[in-house]
Amino acid sequence: MTDLSATQGAGRPWGRIALRWGLYVLLGLFALYYLIPLFVMVTTSLKSLEEIRSGSLIALPREVTFDAWTKAWANACTGIQCEGLRPYFWNSVFMAVPAVMISTVVGAMNGYVVAQWRFRGANVIFSLLLFGCFIPFQVVLLPMAKMLGILGVAGTIPGLIMVHVIYGIGFTTLFFRNYYVTIPVELVKAAKIDGAGFFRIFFSIFLPLSLPIIVVSVIWQFTQIWNDFLFGVSFSQAGTQPITVALNNIVNSTTGVKEYNVDMAAAIIAALPTLVVYVVAGKYFIRGLTAGSVKG
């Protein structure tokens, strides 16, 4: 009897340890698989063209040089112009920041109304907004182009802002609505009896509660808008193109020698802002996504 229980006792922890290690190895492999492209991009961007041609793809740079980065930022050619990514980077900033802010504010307002002020048809309107999340980009391209033309903002940054706001409202409304439905309706009732009106209740009571979901909305919208290519390429013209379009032009329009190091540096520059946003606000993102599932 004692022997039996001893072997059982010994067998169980060994099995558990093996399982744990197996899990770690597997996760490590996945992480590696995801990180290798980034590694290759970073190392390649720091090599000279000479070294890229002669060396191996995954080797560390023998001599670190930032020439490719300066070129990508300031004087790489996108078609006939050779002023690097810089102007397009700022185009993207001027497009993404207002678009994120406007769509988040409108989404918060919509979510508040749909979740807490049940009016006739609230559910229908919410369903329609939700449906907007599932409309593929391609479907709206032509009508949107027509609309932008009518409004006189075709090919401008405000036009792009408008497109992104409209497309983003469905998502931001969904975020805020789902966050606000977890807040008891009695809060609004109490505030009404205290004399607060629609906007007072929103700004004094709901907005201060919303930091986690604002972060979610900002990260989501910023990533979407910054990374968008299709709207950018369709609704911009020379001078108003966002960075994603410029990146494509740099990589695809070079003639002669392909400057891999410049391409890689340009790609990293284009991706950097979303990375920064995620690192800075990432923990709120996770918290915001799970908010409501657990009662505080």
């Binding site: 008891p184 009695e186 809060l187 009732k189 109490a190 009896i193 004094s204 009571i205 201060p208 509660l209």
Partner: peptide, 11 residues
């Protein structure tokens, strides 16, 4: 009015 869930403003 006093509510069942108290409805205090959380922030």
């Amino acid at each position: 009015m006093v509510f069942q869930s108290y409805a205090l403003y959380p922030t």
